[in-house]
Design a protein around this nucleic acid. Structure first.
Length: 599
RNA sequence: GGCCCCGUGGUGUAGCGGUCCAACACGCCGCCCUGUCAAGGCGGAGAUCGGCAGUUCGAAUCUGCUCGGGGUCGCCA
């Protein structure tokens, strides 16, 4: 038996007990004849006292101890001397008077201290992840992730869902992201692909009569990484039969309010979750995943400035571009240095630049504003009337700072919505204790793909158009809205879903519009279409990023912090040094020859 | 693929043309120390400043390339 309780457990009520603890040496404070050791495990810290007079052997051995050695200590729980209590520790009222010490294992000097506030390079942390994860914050994140999964699993079970695992080794269905592939030994030249999501499998389960499916599904996408994107991530994947869009949204609202309530009861979750049309989200926020905890909506100035006489605006407007702005309230006193930083920010979001427009706080209303009250690089290119009209359209007044971005519509929307998020953070406009979920609905079914010069599915090819839009598939595919929905939380996209197509004619129309040949359709979707010939129930579902919701619940800004063994931006695991080369023998078995290795 | 930021003992930083065979804190090693909890005191070891090439009388410092890390645009149905 290694221990009677964990290191964080002993309390005043345990005084007088003889107990054994096991854990890591967190810190040693050696006073000569008296040595203190903080012994640590996942549950916390306990102070152990080694006294030369009363436990000579143990005290001598304690002198050898070093950080992160693994030890076992037996002793009596004792109340601390008056004045020696440590109110910062849950165990701080007591200490263990050691009588016996066993060294269970030694440790090399750790590369960094096991403390929450140490600032260590990400790569070093990942290389020594086993040390990194000993930090209380990381353990807390792992525990939170477990609790979230547990909460979701219970809720789904209670709501009639069946948890079903689906294959990791399956087939490439080139569509969307790049696949990770696995060569087949038995079938030379053939490859499995790891699932980007279990999309077709869960639909097959609906045809199989499962009725309600869910899974914590590992999904693999060979695309570039971001703070919120890893090459493999976990989705709460679900699918339901005999449902309409609103039925799915109801389940999601219940699931997410329950998860938050059970894991972060201190947070406020406004319900019901509002629904916002995609078009409205783009118009008001320039984004399909707006943070609705604060206003600062994005104004559209294109029409106001399209005939303003200012060539830059006119040419952008006539080319179909957009001129949009947000208002930073009370920020007219921003210095050149501050606005330059914002310009750099929007450039990093892909925009050409940013035009600041300061409105003096020395007037009482917009009507009184003269050219002298406006500070902006465009002041001399536009009439006072136009400048005022712009301010009015954006809702800017005296003392405010307008931030204007111009260019192609999509570029402007990306940049200005990112800028809105950044200003929201700088001005602390969003309450961190409020979790504002939002359903974005009525997404277009198709988006124009310039590269392929054709229509592409916005979500995926099985997403159903709204019934009232079906006839538009022939005449005007671009305006067809789908039974497509996203769940968004505080500016973060948590997941997407849809009601699926089960009508053969509609499905063929969609394939045709996207430009899939019958051969491609058979190759990629044959199995599902065949299943659909045998009685597919109406169904729909969703895939939701688990890592992202845990990240938000943990108050972290990077999903690496809530994944036990994540990868670097170059998709490398520094601990395993993965990916790595394989032996010639392995290559031979797989009938693979590496061309241009290392290049 | 593009853009931005970072790379100096184990860790985190300072130094930004010569006064640097590199400074500070923590950590590490040794000695002392019976009430500390970021223990304390004294002493010590530890870095060819990511790599390569160049500019210069002289490079941690300037330039180019390159490698690694982070952020981001594209990409991610």
């Amino acid at each position: 038996m290694y221990r009677d309780m964990t290191c964080g457990e002993p309390r005043g009520t345990d005084v007088g007990k003889i107990i054994t603890l096991s854990g890591w040496v967190h810190r040693r404070r050696d006073h000569g004849g008296l040595t203190f050791i903080d012994i640590r495990d996942f549950s916390g810290l306990m102070q152990v006292v080694f006294n030369e007079d009363t436990a000579t052997d143990a005290h001598a051995l304690a002198g050898d101890l070093r950080s992160e050695w693994v030890i076992q200590v037996k002793g009596a729980v004792q109340e601390r001397r008056p004045g020696a209590e440590n109110p910062d520790l849950p165990t701080g009222a007591v200490e263990l008077i050691a009588s016996e010490l066993t060294i269970l294992n030694r440790s090399s000097t750790p590369p960094f201290e096991v403390e929450d506030d140490v600032n260590v390079a990400d790569e070093t942390r990942l290389r020594y992840r086993f040390v990194d994860l000993r930090r209380p914050r990381m353990y807390k994140n792992l525990k939170l992730r477990h609790d979230v999964i547990q909460s979701a699993r219970t809720y789904m079970t209670n709501t009639g869902f069946l948890e079903i695992e689906t294959p990791i080794l399956l087939k490439s269905t080139p569509e969307g992201a790049r696949d990770y592939v696995v060569p087949s030994r038995v079938h030379p030249g053939s490859f499995y692909a790891l699932p980007q999501s279990p999309q077709q499998l869960k639909q097959l389960l609906m045809v199989s009569g499962v009725d309600r499916y869910f899974q914590f599904a590992h999904c693999f996408r060979d695309e570039d990484l971001r703070a919120d994107r890893q090459p493999e991530h976990t989705q709460i994947d679900l699918e339901m039969s005999f449902v309409e869009q609103e039925d799915v949204l109801q389940v999601l609202e219940g699931l997410y309010t329950t998860m938050v309530r059970e894991t972060r009861p201190d947070l406020e979750v406004p319900t019901p979750f509002p629904r916002m049309a995609y078009a409205e989200a783009i118009e008001r926020y320039g984004s399909d995943k707006p943070d609705i905890r604060f206003g600062m909506e994005v104004a559209r100035l294109t029409e106001i400035v399209s005939d303003s006489g200012f060539g830059v605006f006119e040419s952008i407007a006539s080319a179909g571009g957009a001129i949009r702005a947000i208002v930073a309230p009370g920020c007219a006193d921003y210095t050149r240095r501050q606005t330059d930083a914002l310009i750099e920010f929007v450039k990093s979001s892909g925009a050409q630049g940013l035009i600041p427009m300061h409105i003096s706080p020395d007037v009482t209303s917009l009507e009184e504003v003269t050219l002298d009250d406006i500070r902006s690089p465009i002041r001399n290119h536009l009439s006072l009337e136009t400048l005022k009209a712009m301010a009015e359209a954006a809702g800017a007044g005296p003392g405010d700072l307008m931030l204007i971005v111009a260019g192609p519509e999509s570029v402007v929307n990306t940049a200005i919505s990112n800028l809105r998020g950044e200003m929201g953070r700088r001005l602390e406009l969003a309450d961190p204790n409020v979790f504002s979920f939002l359903f974005v609905v009525d997404f277009p079914l198709f988006e124009w793909d310039d590269d392929r010069d054709g229509w592409a599915a916005m979500h995926h090819v099985f997403s159903s158009p709204r019934p009232e839009d079906v006839e538009l598939l022939d005449s005007d595919p671009g305006v067809v809205l789908g039974q497509l929905y996203d769940l968004v939380l505080n500016g973060v996209e948590l997941g997407s879903g849809s009601i699926r197509i089960i009508d053969r004619a509609v499905q063929e129309k969609v394939f045709e519009l996207i430009g899939h040949s019958p051969e491609q359709v058979e190759e990629r979707f044959g199995q599902l279409l065949r299943a659909f010939e045998y009685g597919a129930p109406p169904h729909g579902g969703m895939g939701l990023g688990l890592d992202r919701i845990v990240m938000l619940l943990a108050g972290e800004e990077n999903i690496r912090e809530v994944i036990a063994f994540p990868k670097t931006q170059a998709a490398v695991d520094p601990l395993f040094d993965a990916p790595g080369v394989i032996t010639d023998e392995q290559l031979r078995e797989l009938s693979i020859r590496v061309v241009n290795p290392g290049g």
